[in-house]
Design a protein around this nucleic acid. Structure first.
Lengths: 347, 347
DNA sequence: CTGAAAGCGCTTACAG
DNA sequence: CTGAAAGCGCTTACAG
């Protein structure tokens, strides 16, 4: 004896109305007389009935699903904010947000080969990974709007949102330069460069900005845990005669442990070493990290609005929108000591 | 002129076969001759066709959606791990994971009144919030398996997974006691107590364990940012004659900023003050925080497997499973100084 | 305001 | 191995 699933027609029978009327009582309540509607809703409640969306989806040709392609299976600060922001706007509109992590090349190839989103999604949102041109082309065959968040190109996207990374990196370099720093180290993670678009771009801008300033030398170093560690980098720094007086880390989640370890090594921050991050994410405020503030949650909300407009075939005011970043100065940056790390011991 | 959506019947026509055969070529490839199958797949690719799941969902009565009810809209470490773990197991099986944040009472009431999951989900997973009994009863009317992750009761759940918080808190108290601490402060956040089940329970266990040990006094303090701050608590500590020598914070995300501030106040950690967290989450290892290790990702994977078994009406080996916690000792805890914080200045 | 009927795009039991 | 046909549970244009 199988459990019979309650359907609109069960409700209709009990309420002595047609299925059409039951359907309308839920989806277009104004088209049903109050008495009928109340009767239907009461009986529905009695039978634990709710309208099934599956049938409506089939009828309308809309899946009410939106795919979110992210670079990593691990949900870090940025992705968490994006997810929150998107869901905040999409959920009330009846859209489900489905996460597709492209965490390894196998996953990634499978996804783009099978394209599980085709015919099964109303839009595809790509967040913050170095999507390739052939992948964009492939996604386009799904025939649904394609929205980018921090993507390397606008080409092929119906809409994009992004932060102005150029400005962010410039702010970092100029802040440090104006404090009197002459040698700045930029630390980035190489293992991310394949997926995370931001790495490569920030590195280039850093080098360009430093070389524009005659007084500043920019040096870069890859940081590839667990092979490299904070301590290895700190050791490298301490051993140099002409060590950098400021370190810029690619994101706060790298800057915070580095900050911690630097102090444990006996460095006084910021006098011995200025440390600056990027993101203004969790703990940055609490530990006093100078950083570049951005708000991916707000940006994602706007991406979600554009997505809805595209689905509903509304014209977009700004298909390609850039969001501001802001230098947030806290206590981890300051003027360097007059003398270098070593020289001050020699008097 | 509207864009015609490609369907299985378009493919069928072009391939000179029936829709049934097209369907089988995708869903039961072994039931179709290789020649026919290849022809169909080639034509499908040509037409950018993929099988639409909406029709299958309707036919099978399965939505292939699983609801995840979480306490907060903000995705913190624990929830991120749960989401990753669940999705890791569910996605390959063709299930979509949909997040429903119960972040305020309006959202929460709306959800339980309308029960949007009824008739629209194959299972409901509740993660780590203080769900009420009447809400559990209401969820049961959805007629789908109900799975709990760190929920306050097993009553009404088809399966649950959880960590042994009792053991975790005991480990904390005994670790500190055996290092020689006599007065331990437990800091918890009150604003979470409504939603996060763990708060209340850990508090009780802490008090019970301390009172069991004759040598240890347990004191507790609510920490309610932004009203209260780390600094306020530290000030309170420094001003006491008989200050606690160890502080246990409800979770690492509170312990880490506290650790940072404590050092900036001039306290030597762990000699002046031992600090211990809970979770072993992001940065705990990097900053050397002693904590209770747990692995919500593994736990969530098991929850997902139980969910699939329940959906497929397989019997469960262990409907209610508890996962271990582990004391992870790092450098933020140690023996207290022989003399109290104040006494040592007086000689 | 309400009902009968067609149809969304597949799947599958049945027949061949 | 393949096809014709019924049907999943709604929605909606049409008729009244």
């Amino acid at each position: 004896m199988t459990h019979h699933k309650t359907t609109a027609s069960d409700v209709a029978r009990k309420a002595h109305v047609s299925v059409s009327t039951v359907s309308r009582a839920f989806s277009r309540p104004d088209q049903v007389s109050e008495a009928t509607r109340n009767k239907i809703l009461a009986i529905a409640d009695d039978l634990n009935f709710s309208i099934s969306r599956a049938a409506g989806n089939l009828k309308s040709g809309k899946s009410h699903r939106i795919a979110l392609l992210v670079g990593d299976e691990k949900i870090e600060w940025f992705t968490a904010c994006v997810f929150e922001g998107l869901n905040h706007v999409l959920a009330p509109e009846g859209y489900d947000l489905i996460s597709y992590p492209m965490n390894d090349s196998e996953n990634r190839n499978l996804f783009f080969d099978n394209l599980p989103v085709r015919n099964n999604t109303d839009a595809v949102i790509v967040s913050s990974f170095a999507i390739r041109n052939n992948e964009i082309e492939r996604l386009q065959t799904a025939g649904v709007p394609l929205i980018g968040i921090n993507v390397p190109t606008h080409q092929g996207f119906s809409a994009t949102v992004g932060t102005n990374d150029d400005t962010g990196v410039k702010l970092v370099v100029h802040h440090l330069a104006s404090l009197g720093h002459r040698k700045i180290l930029y630390i980035y993670q190489t293992f991310q460069s394949d997926l995370k678009f931001s790495s490569q771009k920030r590195l280039k801008v850093f080098q360009r900005e430093c070389s524009k300033l005659k007084t500043v030398t920019g040096v870069v170093e890859a940081f590839n845990p667990p092979t490299t560690s904070c301590d290895a980098i700190l050791t490298g720094l301490l051993a140099q005669d002409d060590a950098p007086t400021a370190v810029f880390l690619h994101q706060d989640s790298q800057a915070i442990p580095f900050f911690f370890r630097a102090r444990e090594c006996g460095l006084e921050i910021p006098h011995d070493l200025s440390i600056i991050g990027y993101d203004d994410s969790t703990f940055a405020g609490e530990v006093g990290l100078t950083t570049i503030h951005q708000d991916p949650r707000i940006m994602a909300q706007e991406a979600a609005r554009k997505t809805l407009d595209l689905i509903n075939r509304q014209p977009l005011q700004k298909p390609y929108e850039e969001f501001p970043v802001e230098l947030t100065v806290r206590s981890s940056t300051g003027a360097p000591r007059k003398k270098s790390l070593y020289a001050r011991y020699d008097g």
